[in-house]
């Protein structure tokens, strides 16, 4: 049996795993963005919170992912819950960092003008700050999306679904084809994610910056 016939035979399973993998990745990215952007915004307003929040995010980033999964088992059990939690935690840092960077890079005079012509704080945030920072924020989300695809494969070690399952069982059974059946789609998925998020990034870039 060669790689090709193996792939054809298990095409159905690969497709299912790929779909699960995509689901887990998107869910994690969604949660990470939903948490990371507001946290970044909060830090940009409350300077004093910057150090503790960034510190925690940095420390978490430094914990080996397998170890983190192990710690999570007693708390969240096994399966998808701890897997998503792990991926979210790892995705937060680039999103928070880029949100803060994006917001602090806005011209101070533009913001003073916004305030001076009578926008409320919320309006300054939603009408001026976020639109201007969005390209930078999206670049952070894009980085997270790509690394998430890789991280989700590790989730198989604690019983979550996805392409990691193929890789993990391939390692266990010394089946190189099966490892490749998991690894190659995961790799392609990461590239696809990068491409898709680059489109989103372009989409949210204000027209004025595109022309220059």
């Amino acid at each position: 049996m060669n790689l090709f016939t193996f792939l054809v035979q298990s095409a159905g399973e690969i497709a299912t795993r790929l779909f699960q993998h995509l689901q887990l990745t998107l869910l994690s990215i969604f949660i990470a963005t939903a948490l990371g952007v507001p946290l970044g915004v909060l830090i940009s307003y409350r300077r004093r919170m910057k150090k503790p929040v960034m510190g925690v995010a940095n420390v978490v980033q430094a914990i080996p992912s397998i170890a983190l999964l192990g710690f999570l088992i007693p708390i969240l059990g096994i399966g998808e819950k701890p897997a998503v939690f792990m991926v979210v935690v790892y995705s937060l840092l680039p999103i928070i960092k880029n949100t803060v960077t994006g917001l602090s890079g806005i011209n101070a005079e533009t913001l003073e003008a916004a305030k001076g012509i009578g926008m409320t704080r919320i309006q300054v945030l939603t009408k001026v700050k976020l639109p201007l920072a969005l390209p930078v924020i999206m670049a952070g989300v894009r980085i997270s999306a790509v690394t998430s695809v890789g991280l989700v494969t590790l989730a198989a070690f604690i019983g979550a679904n996805g392409l990691g399952y193929l890789i993990y069982s391939g390692i266990r059974t010394l089946n190189d084809y099966q490892i490749l059946a998991g690894a190659v789609p995961a790799c392609l998925l990461a590239l696809l994610m990068d491409f898709l998020f680059s489109l989103v990034e372009k989409m949210v870039t204000p027209a004025c910056f595109k022309q220059n």
Partner: peptide
């Protein structure tokens, strides 16, 4: 809102 405010050109919103 009831007072007009003009500053140097960076006062326009670029986006």
């Amino acid at each position: 809102r009831n007072i007009g405010y003009v500053i140097q050109q960076t006062g326009l919103f670029p986006h």
